[in-house]
Design a binder for these strands. Structure first.
Length: 569
RNA sequence: CUCCCCGUAGUUUAAUGGAUAAAAUGAGAGACUUCUAAUCUCUAGAUGAGGGUUCGAUUCCCCCCGGGGAGACCA
């Protein structure tokens, strides 16, 4: 924020005043107690001036110290670094600022931009598994980070409602579907099992393989009434079921795309570019090998478009519907990273305007210690099963002091479990795989979703029990002098930087780490300082403001991650 | 065979080329007559191997070893 620029200015001034010329450098936030801000300008300078870094740092620090602004208390040269310490007065007044701003942390950096984020992308007839959960958690967080920077975000979901996987599932039903009276979860389970049956048969039985391919053709042409019937019912069940999950996860999509509606556009693009695609063994392929990639089939020998072609159609459609798009992000599992490299190349050759603004982000896969999870073998963990597992773990660590009734407590388990799952997905960099182990991986203590929720609930509890509302202005911030209080303020102060950085780098893990540290400082403050009952009412009020502000920032940070903060747990 | 990604405490993960590599968990020791102990405090513990670039490398380059993904009619 502004203070960082101020530091930069001070250093630039000192460099000029000392006759060192100019230098490029960055203002960093050091890890430990070296200072509140640090500057590494001297390394480049030292080389140029043929002096030791320590010498240069000392001279500059001395120069800067001669006229310190009131925000800075002290400047120190250590090794090749110049470290800046913020003054207590400055921090205290910063709290007044933060407390009075309702949207502290958000910015207008991307105002006027429209960004599409495509994520989740489950396939009808198949299970909604934990991989979709990852895509959803990461995509939702990215969408919200963009919104926090002022962008308009269009949440898109691309669902594969035609294609070979659907044919496999329909074959797997053997013409039998559960009755309408059966619960939705059961129906969807049935479809998932049918898919697994079909997929296995496709691989192992040559005669079934061609039967399934025939069904695929019938789905595409809508030529067979019985296939149409099974298709319509199964598709509806899946989509209804997905809606329930999206609601639980806190996602609301603005636009749904289906493979069935992108196929014809895709086919047109392929046929219009004989220079890009060519015939090979009865199919139309893209000769990726010419570009150092690999070859891919776009139209199979039966004349049907593959996923590749539909994806071309999709990306064209996106820009037709939303010509104002400045960026189009696609979040999927990293197993199709290579596939996307090829696809983006074909886009660049056929729809270059769209290609230039499209970016694929491959997130890591959830793996079992043994290997990859596969829905083809039916060996998957569904999103619902995972949530249930975590709920079971949460039941074991309930606090008797929460003040919630049995029934209220019961209703908090599911959102709490979802927060644990989302948190553990978002706390690591998106490209990384998660080795998933029910017993170990999903933490509900320590660095975890419930930890933040617990911290938030505790802070709220103080505010409730204090009986009087904390003001957002007109309090005495100079009452806050304890180390645990000042550290907390420093952390609050950093929120806008962290949000902006997380968005720019598409790295939600920075925000997660920040929030964990914030909660840690808040708990430390909570343990060290007893707030309620303080006879010094000015101090009491100031502390309540600090508690309230911390709680608000915790909540708004969680919200940005797509995690709903629970008032009481 | 080719192309991509990844190797960090026992385990799961952090770290725009910068200081003493940061946490959690597990292990050990302590803290509730007071605002929710789902917490807090302290101790021990890591960059796969070898070269190179650099004032400085977990980060960039090369090679080796190990793991994963993709590679023609699936997504």
């Amino acid at each position: 924020m502004i203070i960082k620029d101020r530091v930069k200015e001070l250093v630039n001034q000192a460099v000029a005043d000392t006759g060192f010329g100019t230098v490029d450098f960055q203002v960093e936030k050091p890890k430990s107690d070296f200072g509140d801000y640090a500057v590494n300008a001297v390394f480049g300078l030292a080389k140029k001036l043929k002096k030791t870094p320590g010498e240069v740092a000392r001279q500059l620090a001395e120069k800067i110290s001669q006229s310190l602004p009131e925000e800075i208390e002290q400047v120190e040269a250590v090794g090749g670094y110049i470290n800046f310490f913020l003054s207590r007065q400055y921090l205290q007044s910063a709290l007044s600022d933060i407390a009075s701003q309702k949207n502290y942390g958000r910015s207008e950096e991307l105002k006027g931009q429209t960004v599409m984020v495509e994520y989740t992308d489950p396939n009808p007839f198949k299970l909604f598994h934990i991989g979709h959960l990852m895509s959803n958690a990461i995509g939702e967080a990215i969408a919200r980070l963009y919104e926090a920077q002022g962008a308009k975000v269009i949440r898109a979901n691309y669902q594969g409602d035609i294609g070979l996987h659907v044919a496999k599932a329909i074959w797997g039903t053997q013409g039998q579907l559960p009755g309408e009276s059966v619960g939705l979860a059961e129906k969807v389970k049935f479809l998932g099992a049918a898919y697994a049956r079909g997929a296995a048969a496709y691989e192992n039985q040559p005669e079934t393989k061609s039967a399934i391919e025939e069904i695929n053709e019938k789905i595409f042409n809508r030529s067979d009434p019985e296939v149409n019937r099974l298709y319509q019912i199964g598709r509806r069940w899946s989509l209804e079921y997905f809606e329930i999950i999206y609601a639980k996860l806190g996602t609301k999509f603005d636009r749904y795309f289906f493979e069935s509606e992108t196929a014809s556009d895709g086919l047109t693009i392929v046929r219009q570019h004989p220079d890009v695609f060519r015939e090979s063994a009865g199919a139309i392929i893209f000769p990726g090998e010419q570009y150092g990639l690999h070859n891919r089939v776009f139209i199979n020998a039966r004349g049907l478009p593959t996923y590749e072609t539909k994806e071309l159609g999709l990306n064209k459609k996106k820009f037709e519907l939303y010509p104002e798009l400045a960026q189009s992000l696609i979040i999927t599992g990293n197993e199709i990273n290579e596939y996307f490299r090829v696809l983006l190349k074909t886009m660049a050759l056929t729809i270059p305007e769209a290609a230039a603004k499209t970016r694929h982000i491959g997130h890591g896969m959830l793996r079992l210690p043994g290997g990859k999870l596969s829905s083809r073998t039916g060996e998957v963990v569904t999103a619902e099963e995972l949530i249930e597992q975590v709920v079971g773990k949460l039941r074991e660590i309930v606090s008797p002091k929460s003040g919630l009734s049995e029934w209220e407590r019961e209703t908090t388990y599911e959102p709490l479990a979802i927060s644990a799952i989302k948190y553990s997905i978002l706390k690591q960099s998106p490209g990384h795989d998660i080795i998933f182990d029910f017993d170990k991986s999903l933490s509900i203590r320590g660095d975890s979703g419930p930890y933040l929720q617990y911290t938030y609930a505790r802070l709220n509890s103080i505010l409730t029990k204090a009986g009087e509302a904390a003001p957002s202005s007109n309090f005495a911030p100079d009452q806050l002098k304890e180390e645990s209080e000042l550290k907390l303020i420093k952390q609050l102060f950093e929120l806008p930087n962290v949000i902006s950085e997380s968005c720019q780098k598409i790295a939600p893990q920075h925000l997660v780490l920040y929030l964990f540290e914030l909660a840690n400082l808040a708990n430390n403050f909570y343990e060290k300082i007893h707030i309620i009952g303080d006879e010094n009412t000015e101090r009491l009020t100031a502390r309540l403001v600090l508690v309230k502000t911390t709680a608000q920032m915790l909540k708004s940070g969680l919200t940005l991650l797509g995690i709903g903060a629970l008032e009481k747990i």
